[in-house]
Amino acid sequence: MTVGRGSVSPQALRRVLGVVAGIVLLALWQIAGKAGISPYLPPMSDAVGAAWDMVTGPQLKADILPSVGRALAGLIIGCLLGMLAGVVIGYGRLHEWVRPTLEFLRSLPIVAIAPVVLIAFTPGSATRVGIIALASFWPVFVNTEDAARSVDERLIETARAYGRNRSWILFRLVGPATLPMAVAGARIATSVSLLAMVVSEFFLATSGLGYQLQYDARGYDVAGMFGAILILGIIGRVMSGAFNGFEHWVLRWYLGQKGLTQ
């Protein structure tokens, strides 16, 4: 297919349309806010202004970066523990023993657990990271455990035939074999970690984006709330974009095998 001079490729056109639609939505928001249709909808410019003030002011170091740091730390810890527990419990056939307990624990909402944990332990950064890790743990664990129970028996037999021991089979075989499912779980965990971060900062906190959000709510600072939400949205978008890159790198063998890379 040849593309004539001056014409635009369909993909580029679609991308432009997406951006245009986004700009139109922002303009509508601005118009609706300026028209004052609701006291709870500030104009877009006020929200962006509040967000800009946060990012350029002392709040960057006091609230935003610590929040992001805790979210990332909790996410990574939760994912690693989820993979470890999933591989050991799934491959070790401990499923029947622990399933009822884990199914119950898994269905407890993190929003309900967070205050209890914060009261029980010191309400510091480490505890908040723990809450985020706990929330991030489940999707990775459930997926990994499921995959570890169905690793191809022939691969395990091959490893045994060549004298590989149990720990090699567990970490060098079952680990990588379950990685595609673990990564799918980690994608969910990425958005869950952001949720858990905000929730963990609602209680007994003196800083952080969640704290900021709740502080602004108490003072009816609607523009401030929208600013914090905008920042959260951008953080979430960046994290999921970074995750795509990470997934392509870590699963290049899997995507290549499935013919999913260009």
Binding site: D152, R154, L155, E157, T158, A159, A161, Y162, G163, R164, N165, W168, R172, L173, P176, A177, L179, W253, Y254, Q257
Partner: peptide
């Protein structure tokens, strides 16, 4: 230790996440 086995379904006995060289090395513990 000095016995090797070649299985029928080669596709299922090679580790897809390892390069060919590393697949061969996977059979050499120690």
């Amino acid at each position: 230790g000095s016995m090797s086995i070649v299985f029928q379904e080669y596709g299922r006995s090679l580790f897809p996440w390892l390069s060919v060289e590393r697949n061969v090395m996977a059979g050499l513990p120690g």
